[in-house]
Nucleic acid binder design. Structure first.
Lengths: 358, 358
DNA sequence: GCACCGGCGTAGAACGTTCTTCACTCGTGG
DNA sequence: CCACGAGTGAAGAACGTTCTACGCCGGTGC
């Protein structure tokens, strides 16, 4: 098959345009409409015509122009909006989405927008301007009302936003349960003073992002054990975890365990604890959340909660394809169960620690 | 400004279409051409008309359709093709490109294709079908000839491919020098038996990918010190590094230092070494390459080579903008200098080790 | 022999832009 | 008083598709 036309033909003064459907029609000696039918493998083409057109297509290296197509209907493009790529969760979700659409007529294009509502909004607009057929919003920071408005004009899946919706499909991990798993594990080991590193709430309350629910889950689980929650609001970053842990260590009664809402923050906390001369898990136990790749590295070996990012991406892609290919119109919600991965940063509290009371 | 139209209007039976330039023209009581001029802030609009049109645009929430625009020229879209996102280098490059185009008329769309020539080819085609104005290929695995052909039809920057080109802009880090920095550092500490974990060559030789040049640089640097190179061909992955290190440890004369061509591989090697009961850097020193975030984590604290991924991304974006905005047509090449980051995984070889000979 | 049908193919009108061409209105210099 | 140019605005032809509406053909049922 012919490849790209040269921009400015070096030798003979050829026009060097990209072949269009008209060129193919001329080459095959048929009408433009016929070529279109063949390309779309639509109804009403004789085998003879089909092969003739196909030959012309191959000869000219014809590929349909997506923009022109989009003007008449579908762009065969799925848009994904994600915050930064440094988060392992995000990259895994994206990879899963891409591979779900691999081999279909759809292409997946990703736009990066940070954890910034305005940039995300602009990215979504950019995608809609490009007439995407479907949208996946990963951990979107914008108000849910706005997302639903978007969803009413193009099929949309919101990932990592809790709460029901009429218009928008959602995929979430059960963060409440994840937090409970972490707390139960620590309590089971004998811990009673367990601090949590959280993050400021975010855009709205009715459809919270994961971290808010994790914190709520933590609080509920603590109370269920008759323990007092101790939340330190920090940030899901190395720095945030570091600072939060220092705050915790400065408490009158130092916690014997820290449950960080994200592995990155847990790493920062680990650094702070070790800088302070304490040992993990000897003096303080540490649990993260996300199961990033790093958590499984031997020297770190962080106990954490896995939210199956890959399944999340697959579910998002599947929901979209249901809308696109099968014509589903009712909103769907998909919830995944997290699991605890016990590794090396948790152990029973040190001897001097207070025993369970009741 | 008005937001998205509802797909199927709930209350009054409104058409619910997205506003087009025609709607704006009607609303403002001017011609379509005039609106187009205002949108493009082209020459020949009176202030009075401009403000009238602008008001209509705001009222209707009009946004130009990118597909329709693309048919007449520019799509204002930059396409980036990258292998997987798990590599820190890649994500940093992409982030830098995105932020360079932030605030311009251009949108950046990313396509993921793995380290697989065919998938990358398909991704590039997909982007060209979408009429991108510019292309950045990050560590492309396809033959360079093919890339140059692409570059002749749309401005293209190849990142991490060495060698000169007439058609295609390139941005590379001086991998030869990077390897030399690593070897010099180890030799300076007294090491003589230094193994290298490399990766199979790839698509072509005239314009090699980084890892090939790193290996060559390692070999040259070793010879410059009068030492025999010891290359273990593995893969740039945790598993690849693990296996390669085991191979090295099985040597009759065990190396006292390992220089891995990538940090991920170094991590795998670290695991293998510690699994074998040896200590880093006590028994074996270890140097990586890439300076991924993880290398800076306290518990790892890997000595490595930084190739300034951010500057790479910025350079790529700049080269593209030179072509797009300033009309440069000659190919340009941009080379960045890597730097050594000495951390905790390198030390003088253990006592029993042979002393420098000459 | 005629109406009708299914199968195949074509013409041509959209789709939402940009941009060239043209027309109109002033003000100005001759 | 006329020609002219600058400044503004409008009309309309692309751009590359899809898709509806239609036409032609040979066969079939009456």
């Amino acid at each position: 098959m012919a490849e790209f036309p040269e921009r400015s033909a070096a030798g003979p003064a050829r026009p060097a345009r990209r072949a269009t459907i008209k060129d193919v029609a001329a080459e095959a000696g048929v009408s433009v409409a016929a070529v279109s039918k063949v390309v779309r493998s639509a109804y009403g083409v004789s085998p003879e015509m089909k092969s003739r057109v196909q030959a012309a297509i191959d000869k000219l290296g014809y590929r349909p122009d997506v923009g022109a197509r989009a003007m008449r209907g579908h762009s065969y493009t799925i848009g994904v909006v994600a915050p930064e790529l440094s988060s392992f969760f995000v990259t895994e979700v994206i990879d899963a989405i891409v591979s779900q659409f691999e081999g279909t007529a759809y292409g997946v294009t990703v736009m990066l927008a940070g954890a910034d509502a305005d940039r995300q909004r602009r990215a979504v607009h950019g995608l809609i301007d490009r007439k995407v057929d479907g949208l996946v919003l990963v951990a979107p920071w914008t108000p849910f009302r706005w997302i639903e408005k978007v969803a009413r004009s193009v099929p949309t899946v919101a990932v990592a936003r809790h709460g029901a919706s009429q218009d928008c499909d959602t995929v979430v991990s059960d963060d409440e349960q994840g937090a409970r798993l972490a707390v139960d594990h620590l309590v089971g080991l004998g811990h009673r003073r367990i601090a949590h590193i959280g993050q400021a709430a975010g855009p709205d309350d009715s459809h919270p992002l994961s971290h808010v629910v994790r914190q709520r889950g933590y609080e509920a689980a603590m109370r269920a054990h008759g323990l007092e929650p101790d939340v330190i609001v920090g940030a899901y970053s190395d720095r945030g975890g570091y600072d939060a842990a220092r705050t915790a260590l400065a408490r009158a009664e130092t916690p014997t365990a820290i449950f960080a809402g994200a592995d990155v923050a847990a790493l920062g906390a680990l650094r702070a604890i070790e800088d302070a001369g304490a040992r993990v898990p000897g003096d303080i136990s540490l649990v993260g959340y996300d199961n990033i790749w790093l958590a499984g590295v031997k020297r770190i070996w962080l106990t954490t909660v896995d939210e199956s990012s890959q399944l999340t991406g697959e579910a998002a892609a599947r929901l979209l394809r249901e809308r696109l290919d099968e014509g589903r119109t009712r909103a769907a919600r998909h919830t995944l169960a997290p699991s605890l991965i016990v590794r090396g940063t948790t152990a029973p509290p040190p001897q001097g620690s207070r025993l369970p009371a009741d």
